[in-house]
Design a protein around this nucleic acid. Structure first.
Lengths: 201, 201
DNA sequence: TCCTTGTTTACACGGTTGTACTAACAAAGC
DNA sequence: GCTTTGTTAGTACAACCGTGTAAACAAGGA
């Protein structure tokens, strides 16, 4: 037997190399060759993990989702349900290097997914999961009595919160990198304050 | 003298061809060759209007901005300041074929601009102008007495409204095309209702 | 008629792309 | 020793890329 490879670990290494290429060189440079070089592999070796470029892009996008989800699930509950909700939502904003990488990959793949039937399901899944997460955050506030259930359409409010968070994230990506996210955090906080029945209105 | 060309009109024709390629074939296919073919030109002819690919992309993005701005400026005032504001904001959502094209181009160029120093200024300009427009919409509501000036930070509220609109637009792009935007319109309306001092709260 | 000039075409250059294929290699079992 | 087998490296293909150049063309002025 030759040197054995941990395929799961290898896939992650390659995906992270793809992230770096995407961040450093842009969406037009995510070629199999460039990613392989960044990962220190020959293209033939990379093709053992990812036989096609699409499979590489899909996995790279899915890894973004897994990382974000794991980070949110690992959060300690805050002093109040409201504080917990805000902390979770902040994980969806590019407020440090790791989250910025994830957001840029998510954003770039969104552009590709619009015309790639291979990439679309993975992208739609991220949208659906993030939407579901927003819904859960709101439900928790509801149960904690921080919101008024009667005047709140949960479907619509989840979509609204999701849109606000993604919009803030998008603008933070383009903003000058010295933005520490204080403004975005305040906007998010104000938004929650203004939901009907908010105990902090 | 040979056949004379209206260069301004030609630039627009080429840019719209670039839009079509981008929409139909995706961000990876906006090559000089593909755009020239879509416009019915030889690449050499296209290079007379746009000597480099960057100049073509920049103009195509700027044309998006001009179209959206012109459409908003051409709007008739609605029955109330609030109705006028909503109508303006709707122009920034992909609610028909034309606006969808503009939004997809805007979105795609955003991905490219993150690593293209040539494209960045044009993209940043769109962001700044849209932000300024959001601010104007809010100022009008303020002057009409529909909002409470004291408890409203205009900078922050402009950024928040901008983020919400761009987030809604982003999700409408990915949503199934049968979405007529009713949900997005309602979300936008609710958001304005909840601004401090709103007369429709 | 020829000339001038804006326009169009066709082709060339060096480089990159996704994917495929084949030979070399390294290490464990016999 | 040899074989087996997961892994790697290298190369090949046809297609496409951005850009450059130079020849062909068409139409109005002289």
């Amino acid at each position: 037997m030759p040197k054995l490879i941990d395929h799961d670990a290898r896939e992650i290494e390659v995906a992270e190399a793809a992230w770096r290429v995407l961040l450093r060189d842009g969406i037009t440079k995510i070629s199999v060759r460039n990613v392989a070089a960044e990962a220190g592999l020959a293209t033939g070796s990379l093709r053992r993990s990812f036989p096609t470029q699409d499979s590489l892009l899909i996995f790279s996008l899915q890894l973004v989702q897994r990382r974000a989800r794991d980070r949110i699930l690992a959060l300690e509950p805050g002093p109040t349900p409201r504080a917990t909700a805000e902390a979770c939502l902040m994980q969806l904003l590019p407020l440090d290097a790791d989250r910025r990488v994830e957001m840029e990959v998510y954003h770039a793949m969104g552009s590709l997914a619009l015309t790639s039937s291979a990439l679309r399901p993975a992208y739609d899944q991220i949208l659906a999961d993030t939407r579901a997460a927003c819904r859960v955050f709101l439900e928790r506030l509801l149960r904690a009595g921080d919101l008024d259930a009667a005047s709140l359409d949960l479907d619509r409010e989840s979509a609204a919160l999701h849109a606000l968070v993604d919009g803030l994230a998008l603008h933070l990506l383009a903003a000058d990198p010295h933005d520490d996210g204080t403004h975005a955090a305040r906007i998010l906080s104000d938004y929650l304050d203004r939901l009907p029945g908010s105990t902090r209105a």
